[in-house]
Structure formats: C-alpha cells, structure tokens
Design a protein around this nucleic acid. Structure first.
Length: 920
RNA sequence: AGAACGUUAGCUCAGUUGGUUUAGAGCGCCGCCUUGACAGGGCGGAGGUCAUGGGUUCGAAUCCCUUACGUUCUACCA
C-alpha cells in the first residue's frame, strides 16, 4: 500500500500495475499526508488580489470550550465545499477560522476546574481568576480547530481569530463606547432573566422555554376585616362572615413571602365582597391589600392572583400600576434571603418543598393540581430562570433592527431555505432591548467608570475616562484610584456580532486592505437556532459600522438527529464521536455521508449507513482508478464503440455539469453531490468504463485512454470540493504533476458546450436494449459470458421500415459489447424466439433450450396493457380541444411524440402476440 | 394559544414557474452472479390510489380551502 500512494511533490515514475494497488481504499494513509501538503504549500491562504474576485466565508466561531460534534461536521463540511469550489473557480477564497470565548460556558468550566483543585472562585481576585482562565484557554482552546483539520477544512489558518484577543476586544470596547455616545446603550433597573447557577443575567435569546408538568398550589389567605386593619368602615359586613379565606392558586408557593397584594378581577362576582379588603399571607401573617385589575383572568386558577413584583414580570408591571412595594426575597444564587423571614438560606426549590409541608400542616393548603406549564431555562446552564429585578446595561434595538430587517426583506441578504424569512421578520418586528451585561469575569469588561458620587462615564480606556470624569464632576483633582470600573462583562454575542468585520481588523483600521477586499463576505453557513442570537445582530453591526450587509447568503443547516429523530446530545449518548468516524471511514466518507441527506434547513437523521455509503463512494473511485491505471496502452486503430462512448460521455458530462451548477447556484449541495455521485458511479463506472474496458490482457487504444484519463481528471476536479482527499490522491497519480501542483487550485469543470446531445438519446435506447438482454439472461438463467444472437426486425407487418432504435448504428457496437450479443437484421418475425420491444423495434433471441410460450404471452400482454393505458391517457389529452388550444406548442409536440412511440410499441407488441396465436 | 413548515415506496428523501411517460433516488428487502477494478461489488426484481375531504383547471404530487397528524419557532396567564 505505502509504495502505491504518492509522496507529495515527489516524482511518481511509472504507473503502478493494479496488482500493486490495494484492493480497498485506505483513507487513513492518505488524508494526513495531503492535508500537510496543502498547508505547506499555503493553498488556503488568501491575500487581497485585485486580479481576482474575492470569495469569503467567516466561520461561525465554535465555543472555545467545545469539541467537535456532528453539527460542526455538517456545518463545516458545507463551508468547505463552498470555499473549495470557489477556490477552484479562480476566486481569492478566504475562509476565516476562529473561536469565541463563550463567557458563561468557559467561566463555568474554569470554576469547575478550580473546584477540583480545591480553589473557590470567591477566594480569587479578578486578575487571578482570569489568569487561570487564560491558562485553561491556552491548553484546550485550540482543540476544536485541530479537529476541523481532520475533516479537511480548508481554512486560512494564518487568520485564526479569537473573540477575546486584544484587537477584537478593543473592537468591542470601541463599539460599546460608540453606541453609548449615540444614545443606544443605557443602564437601568429592569426585570431580567436571571440564571442563578451562572450567577448572571441573560438576554431573552439565551432563555429556552421547556414544556413541563407543574403543580398548582391552592393556598388559603385569611381574609381580614378591613376596619380591623385600616379603620375603613365602608366594607360590607359580609366580609366579616365566613368562609374567612380567599383561595389563591400559585405555582410558586415559596414566593408568598414576597407577596405585596392579591389581585382579583373587578368584574368577578365571586369576589365583589372583597373589594377593599385585606388578606393575610399564610404562615407569615402579614396583611396585604386585595387589589382590582382586569388583567386577572377570571377563569384561570381561582381567579385570585398573588402579586409578587420582585419575582414575576407581570406582577412587576401590576405593582408599578398600583404603586405597590417590591420585596425581593432571593439572593443571586437562588437561595432565600433575610427578607423572606422564613426558610432563609434555603434554595428556592428546597424552600418550596418546606413551605408546602408547613402549609399542609397548618391546613392552609387547599389542594394541589397538576397543570401543563412552561419553564424558562438557561440555554447554557440549564437552570430554571428567575425573573429578577436588577441593574443592567441594555442596547436599544429599534434603530438597529429596522435596516437589518429591510436587508432581508428586499433580498439583499438571502436566507436558504427562504422559509426563514418569515421567522426573521417576526423576530425583528418584536425585538426587545438587548440585555448586554453579564455578571461574570471572563469577557470584555464594560468600559464604564463610576465616580465617587455614583455617576459614571463611558470611555475606551481609563485615561480618557479620568478626563471625562474630571470634566463631569468639575473636580480636576480626581485620580485613577477614585474611579471604579464596572465589574460586569459583555455578552459573548456582543463580540460575535462584530465577527465579519473584526476578523479583518475593520474596527482597528477601518480602511485596511483586507477588510476592503474581503468584506462583505459572501456566504454564511450556520444553524437556524442562532438566527437571532447572531445572524440578525451581525446584519445590524454590519450596516451600522460598514454601511454594508456582512454577507449575501445565509445557508441554514438542519439539526443532526439520531435515527429515531432525537436531537443528538451528550446526555442521551446518541452522538457518535466525529473523530472516531473519520478514523474509521475517512474524512471523505464522513463528509459525503453527512451531505447525502441534508437539504438546506432540513434536519438530518444521522445513520451510519450514510457514512458507509460515503466510504463506499471513495472505494468505488479508487477501484475505477485501479482499473484505468492498470491498462496497457497501444496505438490501435479506432473502434466505433469506443469513439461513440467517448462522444457520449462528453455529452453526459456536459449535462451533469449543467445540472450540478444549477444545484450549486440554488445552494442545493446535497443534490449537487448526488448528481456528481451518480455521474461517477453509474455513468462513468457502470457504463462508460465497461464500454471502453479492453478484453482481459488486451491493451487499450491510446486515444481512448487519453480521453478516459481526461474525463477521470475532470471528474476528480468536479468531486474535489466534496471529497478533497481521495480526489487529490488520484489527481496526483493520474498524470505527472509538478512539485507544487494541487487539485485544490485546479480548475472547477465547466460545460464544454461542444457536445452533441443526440448521443444521450442514442445511449438511452442502447442501454435499454442492454438491460432487456440482461433481464432475459436473468430470467433464463443464462450466464453473461454466453454470447447470444440478437435479431432486430427492420420492418413492420406490412413491410414498412421502422426507425432504427440504435440511432443509425452509432450504438450498435456498444450494445453488442455490453450485452454480449451479435446483432443481425431481419425483415420477418422469428418464430420460437423470445422477444422484447424497445421503441418501435422488436428484438429476438433464439434460445437452444426453447421458450415458455405462456410466460412470453403474459409478459407481452402486461406490456401491451400498460402501453394502451398510457396511449389512451395521451389520446385523451390530444383529443381535448381545450388542451390543444391552451397548452404550449412544445408540450403538445412532446405529447405527439409520446403518442407515436406508444403506437409503434403497441403495434410491435400486438404482432408479437399474434405470432403466438393471441388476438385481443 | 398563535404562526411557519411538513405529510410521496418498509426507512430517509427528490420531484425546482401545473403538462418529461400511469411518480424517481438511496438504503432495506427478494433472486441470480465470486479467479480478471470494486462483495465496501455486479445484474435483475418486487414495492406507492403522492395523509384526508373538497375546489380551481383542458390537465394537480405540484395552486386554493377543510380535517388529521408531525416538527419547529414565537408567547407574561399566576
């Protein structure tokens, strides 16, 4: 094996004989070698080049903590196909790799790592913690990029970026300051999504709603006679009478200590007597007012709603409206604080269990019922989100969203598949301000500096901040030490949204050659899940900072699921290890397998069978190569079969190239791959090579050999974006190559435009005849090695000549070779022979062992019935005046042709039956 | 709760402005074939009233409506 694969840049010398080439393809021995060769020769590096059209993709930066999963495999295979094709088309193809710093995930990993070492984050200073985090990142941060190389990703690695490296961080700071100065960033107390596990606020997009069965607890609030509490005597005396309790339904009994009112609908007759009354919080005993608000749904729960402004968004609004106080009973980590009075220090869920027990004991729990509810959880930590009032930084979205929506609406940016346009619009029209602050250390620290008086200034650095602070306070004596920088960092997406610009240093140096040349990028390939998180925001940033959209096309991939349709996840353990797959099936095999079943935007049901098919494709190519390389070449006179075969394949290749190009243009990569796969496997290997293949031990005509090598080469170039490794291996062996040549930078094939389409029709007929003969052999148990005589009848029953189905004998020799028959002509039917009909031609094979008349008759009858049904359906159309009047001329012409074919076939079949003595 | 998308062979999917056959592919299944490129292969075959009911049209898998089921997204009913 070793000696039969090439060494990059080496002299390959004589073509090896097939006996010297392994029977099966071993990708492991080939892939690393070529990847190294590509890197050494810098085929993937891109530099601004005024003579070339740029083609740019920025990678969706994988999480720096991540390892490669099947989603990455799909996503990056698609990107690599696009970028390799563009490179071969002579564009300056630039694929920028990198990672993002993933604040929450990374910080969590570092905290966990420290915990194992017995170190608590609380005991570390910010600087100390960050030192550990960087150390961690140095160690593990590059793993995923190394894994991408195994997949064959042709990124320009010299451009690898990281969202937290100095230049990109500076861009984040610069943008923050700019947006602040434009009045688009503000700080305020809002109800935010709080992740108690991560200890930070999240944006709306980082919250995942999960359907769950929850419990609804019906609690008894003791009704208090109003005048007892307030001296108000206007309350109807009714209230003083029993039942004495107001039942309130809640899913969160542990928050009753934060209750400030109970609300009922003023139109609810059940509670008319409670207007103006007060109730006591169970267990706690504190009296709170009953308020009236039409917001309360009469038919939900008990129609009485406890109001807890600190822990529920709606309650907060209700509280504002009714001027109610806010009692926050929770700590950052989700435990209860002193204001709760009860269960202090317990976690919210533990407190829930405790209070339910106590309520039950006090007979204040009416009942518990199950109901379907929605749980808000953290995208990163999975913790149940706590709506929480807190002081955060926000980015106003309205100004940014408007042009970003327009860009997609007017197709300046196209989403593939286009169904995502709707989704995009709905989100953009309903977008809320973006909470951009995170209570973490790993990330870009917000460049706001607090003065001793609590006010703040925003500036790109401490020096400017000090100047501003001095101006603002009028105190020129202020020192650096008087300023305190904001502790919070920015959302990771606040750096990721700048990615297409920042990777080209477009903020540091807005007029640099790279950004001017490579921006806007061309295509973005990513998952629909981050359409809003990331894609929409990149569009905003692009328009705001470059006045140009960041990309033209967004290809949304599907989700990789297992064969049962479940999302792949670590918990389920249903995800194969991508590197293991590559080791087993080769990167080419895995790439092909992934793309076989992945139309844009549709989920991919992963099946190892697909990967096997991918591997088999490589093996097929490999063996076709073994065959061709094993031929001995000689100067022979041309044979008609081979001449026609080469002309036919030229036409076939042209047609396939046009088809593939159409698929590529529409981002139907799976379809493009399938048509290339069929071209290579069926048309090239199964038909073409079988035609031109010389008899065992015989040499091949030099002209045919050259044509075949030429086709092989073109096929490799065509397939290269999908299967880069094996195509390089073969491309290098198929001809002598120079030291720095590579298929990576060879030409992507284009239709020649000089092929003759009539060869395609001829092949259809000839291959049909071949199939019929094979079928016949199969039915009669005749070996393919036994030559047969095949007679073609040239006239019909009245002696008229019929059109030659083999297209003026162009394909006669081919048919003879493939079917192992000798074709003769006859004007008469041949008795006692099996026969079949192709187009208007009846073919006969005389068999020594005789034939089965019943079988012959049955087959002919079935064929006749089909043809008559078919003919009648066409006749119906053609006899319909409205069809003839309304249909396009070419449609009618096609129908006429179909009719003529069917009529001829019917006639031939009828004659066949008649000869067997069967009249219909 | 609303919306979007989907429902075609046992499975996964094509079917691209309605007319390219009475609907295709791959996998799976069945039969036959092993020295000669490849069993990770070759040849052949079976298998579908295009979810449902209606409508538009000369003509519908394709356009419109209904129902059912599924997936996803959005949504503050405790």
């Amino acid at each position: 094996m070793e000696e039969t694969t090439t060494q990059p840049g080496s002299d390959h010398g004589q073509a090896p004989r097939p006996s010297g080439i392994a029977k099966t393809y071993h990708p492991q021995e080939v892939e690393d070698k070529w990847y190294r060769y590509w890197l050494e020769n810098q085929f993937f590096t891109a530099r601004p080049n005024p003579d070339k059209e740029p083609y740019t993709i920025v990678i969706p930066p994988p999480n720096v903590t991540g390892v490669l999963h099947m989603g990455h495999m799909l996503n990056n295979t698609i990107q690599d196909v696009l970028i390799r094709k563009a490179r071969m088309e002579g564009k300056e193809a630039c694929w920028v790799p990198g990672t993002d710093h993933a604040s929450i995930a990374t910080e969590a990993k570092v905290v966990a790592m420290l915990k194992e070492k017995g170190i608590s984050k609380k005991d570390l200073s910010r600087e100390e913690f960050l030192a550990y985090a960087w150390e961690w990142r140095e160690k593990y941060g590059g793993i995923i990029l190394e894994q991408l190389k195994k997949l064959g990703a042709s990124c320009d690695w010299s451009r690898t970026r990281f969202t937290m490296e100095p230049t990109l961080s500076a861009a984040v700071t610069e943008v923050f300051v700019d947006l602040y100065r434009k009045g688009l960033i503000y700080r305020g107390i809002r109800m935010v999504n709080w992740d108690p596990q991560g200890g930070t606020a999240l944006s709306d997009e980082e919250v995942i709603a999960k359907d769950t069965m929850a419990k609804m607890y019906h609690l008894r609030y003791e009704v208090v006679i109003s005048d007892e509490v307030t001296g108000n005597t206007n309350v109807p005396s009714l209230v003083t009478s029993s039942p004495g309790y107001l039942t309130v339904a809640t899913s969160r009994p542990e928050t009753i200590m934060a209750d400030v009112a109970v609300a009922v609908n003023p139109n609810d007759p059940r509670y008319a007597h409670l207007h103006g009354a007060r109730v006591r919080i169970p267990l706690l005993g504190r009296a709170i007012p009953v308020i009236l608000d039409e917001y309360v749904a009469i038919d939900f729960g008990t129609g009485a709603l406890k109001v807890t402004p600190a822990h529920d968004l709606n309650d907060y609004a209700l509280g504002l409206k009714h001027n109610l106080p806010v009692i926050d009973i929770l700590n950052n980590d989700g435990t209860l604080n002193e204001r709760a009075e009860l269960y202090v220090g317990q976690d919210r869920f533990a407190a829930r269990r405790s209070i339910v027990k106590d309520l039950e004991a006090a007979a204040l729990l009416d009942k518990v019922e199950e109901y379907a509810s929605v749980l808000q959880t953290s995208e990163r930590t999975g913790a149940v989100i706590e709506p929480r009032l807190s002081l955060q930084w926000f980015l106003k979205m309205e100004h940014l969203a408007k042009p970003a929506l327009a860009a997609v609406e007017n197709d300046e940016i196209k989403l593939h598949p286009p169904k995502f346009k709707n989704m995009y619009r709905v989100w953009m029209e309903n977008v809320h301000d973006w909470c951009i602050s995170r209570q973490l250390w790993w990330g870009q620290r917000i460049p706001a500096y607090y003065l001793p008086d609590g006010t703040f200034v925003v500036a790109p650095n401490a020096k400017e901040a000090l100047e501003l602070a001095r101006q603002k306070s009028g105190n020129v004596e202020l020192l650096f030490t008087d300023l305190r920088q904001e502790e919070d960092v920015l959302d990771t997406w606040f750096s990721a949204w700048l990615w297409p610009i920042s990777v080209f240093d477009g903020f540091k140096d807005p007029d640099n050659a790279d950004v001017n040349y490579f921006y806007p990028t061309n295509d973005l390939v990513t998952a629909p899940e981050i359409l809003f998180f990331w894609v929409a925001r990149m569009v905003m940033a692009g328009l705001e900072y470059r006045r140009e959209v960041p990309f033209r096309n967004v290809y949304l991939t599907g989700i990789v699921r297992d064969d049962r349709g479940r999302k792949m996840s670590k918990q389920l353990g249903n995800s194969p290890d991508p590197l293991e797959l590559i080791a087993q099936y080769g990167a080419d095999g895995v790439r092909t397998g992934m793309l076989f079943s992945s139309p844009a935007g549709n989920d991919l049901l992963f099946d190892i069978k697909l990967i096997e098919q991918g591997r088999n494709f490589s093996n097929k190519i490999w063996n076709a190569f073994r065959l061709v390389k094993g031929w001995e070449v000689a100067d022979l006179t041309n044979e008609p079969a081979n001449y026609v075969a080469t002309e036919w394949f030229r036409a076939k290749l042209d047609a396939a190239l046009r088809e593939a190009e159409d698929h590529f243009r529409k981002f139907r990569l799976s379809d493009a791959l399938k048509s290339i796969h069929a071209l290579i496997w069926d048309d090239f290997c199964a038909w073409y090579l079988e035609i031109v293949k010389p008899e065992y031990g015989q040499p091949i005509n030099r002209l045919v050999y050259e044509a075949t090598i030429g086709y092989f080469e073109q096929l490799m170039q065509l397939a290269h974006p999908f299967v880069p490794f094996i195509t390089e291996e073969i491309w290098q062996q198929i001809r002598e190559r120079g030291a720095r040549e590579s298929i990576c930078v060879a030409t992507f094939p284009k239709p020649s435009g000089v092929s003759d389409g009539r060869y395609l029709e001829g092949a259809d007929v000839a291959f049909d005849v071949v199939s019929q003969v094979r079928n016949l052999r199969n039915a009669k148990q005749l070996s393919p090695k036994v030559p047969l005589n095949l007679s073609r009848r040239t006239t019909n029953s009245v002696g008229e000549p019929v059109a030659n189905g083999l297209v003026a004998d162009n394909f006669r020799a081919i048919t003879e070779k493939l079917a192992n028959v000798r074709i003769t002509e006859t004007t008469e039917r041949i008795e006692n022979a099996v026969s079949f009909v192709v187009k208007a031609n009846e073919f006969f094979v005389v068999l020594s062992e005789g034939i089965d008349p019943e079988r012959e008759i049955a087959d002919a009858k079935a064929a006749l019935a089909y043809q008559i049904g078919f003919r009648d359906s066409i006749l119906k159309k053609l006899q319909n005046e409205k069809f003839v009047a309304n249909a396009k001329p070419d449609v009618i012409e096609r129908e006429r042709q179909k009719l003529a074919d069917a009529e001829a076939k019917i006639q031939a079949l009828r004659e066949k039956l008649r000869s067997w003595g069967v009249e219909e």
